[in-house]
Design a protein around this nucleic acid. Structure first.
Lengths: 339, 339
DNA sequence: TTGAAAGCGCTACCAA
DNA sequence: TTGGTAGCGCTTTCAA
């Protein structure tokens, strides 16, 4: 059986297509009585708007937004961050009857290609971007492409895109002071890729907090968020002549890997080594010792950024917003140094 | 600037819209020379087909397929299975210029509602379904809905849907015999939800293998794939008067949680307790001891199931296929019982 | 308030 | 081989 169209409804109701469209979209132009009649018939017929037709009509929207993720494929599966974000984005979207297109890209170039294609083929109405990089080509491109975008990150380097940003300085200071207060002096941060903007700002916050606490040996090394890199880096650090007594990781995956390496090397956590994770997924509470972590509400970030994009798409003026700062959740993996 | 349309190309080339359409879609009806000229112009103009227009045209396809996932939201983020699957599905799809719509649903009812909406609004050309349940309402519904579907799972209960299925009996026997050979007698399997078909068939395989090995005390208990459930269940089992000496988990998340509980209870792995995980994500190699796991190539499953759906969408006759059986990867979490 | 009609960009059919 | 044209289902403008 053919899908019913507004024409079918119009015939059944004995009115014109136009009237049906008005009635269905709740806009003036039909009397209350006809509107009601039309609605009933539409319902009886099991009518639903054809999305392609809606999108094609002048001024029409596609009713979908896109998200492309480019991170090492190996880490993607386990990285809790994205699914949480997706889940938050969707919660907001489904209220508006908007769908989510997801793409995994190899690198920034591929990501740009996806945006270009989406814009050219009119696949989505807008996109949510994450993982802003230092001198990221995306904001500039979005200025050219007819593809509205909002950014989770920034605001530095956002190039005028509305963004939802976080001040990692607050939790970073909290972490450093907490570790310093417990007597840690040699603290190393295992950060994400150097060219991420948020990596950068965390590095700066870490440096300042360490300086203020007089931790001259504090430093940051870079890895790529994968467990493998986390393991490798941790192994190298713990094998140094004067190994760190506390490690601060930029995500929970690397922290988990670090915990594994400590166990493998016979270094006890937390009596000989304290570990702090960033991003507090359920993973952190599942391992032993449980991981002290900086917790932020990623699902809510997803919701908010989706709502911002939605505002942009409905033609509203959208200001960048700041999230609540992450919070330190002390657990079993941190403690005073036992000499 | 307006997006260029085939009409623009037609004007520039001095031919008709129809000719342009033929040329662009590589079908007969134009001479080689005009085709080439049209292609060049299209390229120069930066033309790309409007997806809504294509979809709306008679016989047109939307160029997107959908996937809806309903599992507890908490586990979703960490569950490596889905992102790996998504990643595989996309690899296959992007070759065909097809996009992926992703939705997270609360329960089967919500999932069905999504399919209904997608079909009614013509949002996707077809769907990939996962997590087949005992007396699952989805296959039957797909028979009614004009929405092609393929299933990762089955083949029992697939209700005629083409499916990509796995015989978990092979690896299950391998696991049980391996544990039995190392002297384990009290083996408990911490399974996924009881109403999943694959849970069911694994349970049966487990029962048979245990019986054959003379393991009278082997049994299956159910949890819901989340770390929390994994912890709780493990804690309960290990607190029994005659606790199991080996635990086989249905996913790696619960296995990880189980490992944590063992540590928390001072039970040493593997000397006092062996742990086997199902689904071998990078997580298994990151913890200490590393987790023995049944490994299957989820990414490749994703690719294959996407390719099957694609075949269905192009009107080909598609037969169900069987995947390679999972393989046991022995690691640090299993070993002979030390009494 | 209602009805008729013109697009939106593309595909596919039918004459020429 | 070509060009013209009729939809696809919807929104919106313009008359009636």
């Amino acid at each position: 059986m053919r899908r019913p169209t507004i024409m079918d409804i119009a015939k059944a109701a004995g009115v014109s297509k136009g009237a049906v469209s008005y009635a269905l979209n709740g806009r003036p132009g039909v009397s209350e009585s006809t509107r009601e009649r039309i609605l009933t018939i539409a319902n009886d017929l099991g009518w639903a708007p054809s999305n392609p037709a809606r999108a094609l009509a002048p001024g029409g929207r596609v009713g979908a937004i896109g998200m492309v993720v480019d991170r090492p494929a190996r880490s993607l599966g386990i990285e809790p961050f994205f699914m949480q974000l997706v889940s938050g984005v969707e919660t907001e979207l489904s209220d508006q009857g908007v769908d989510l297109m997801l793409q995994v890209a190899e690198d920034v170039e591929a990501e740009l290609a996806v945006y270009r294609r989406w814009a050219a083929e009119r696949r989505v109405d807008g996109v949510v971007m994450v993982d802003l990089r230092v001198s990221d080509p995306r904001p500039e491109m979005m200025g050219v492409l007819p593809l509205p975008a909002v950014l989770l990150g920034g605001p530095e380097g956002a190039g005028g895109l509305p963004c939802l940003y976080t001040d990692d300085g607050v939790p970073m200071r909290e972490v450093v002071h907490y570790l310093a207060a417990m007597g840690h002096r040699r603290i190393v941060r295992v950060a994400g890729p150097e060219d991420f903007v948020h990596t950068h700002s965390r590095t700066e916050a870490f440096r300042q907090a360490a300086e203020r606490s007089g931790l001259l040996q504090a430093r940051t090394v870079h890895a790529d968020y994968t467990g493998e890199a986390g393991s490798r880096t941790t192994r190298r650090l713990l094998a140094e002549a004067e190994p760190p007594t506390a490690l601060v990781y930029d995500n929970d995956l690397m922290a988990l890997a670090g915990l594994g390496v400590a166990a493998e090397m016979g270094i006890e956590v937390p009596s000989q080594l304290s570990i702090v994770a960033w991003d507090d997924s359920a993973l952190c509470q599942m391992v032993r010792p449980s991981l002290t972590a900086v917790s932020r509400d990623v699902v809510s970030h997803g919701r908010r950024v989706a709502s911002m994009l939605n505002a942009v798409l409905t033609g509203q003026r959208v200001e960048s917003e700041e999230t609540l700062p992450g919070e330190l959740r002390p657990r079993g993996s941190t403690g005073p140094l036992v000499v």
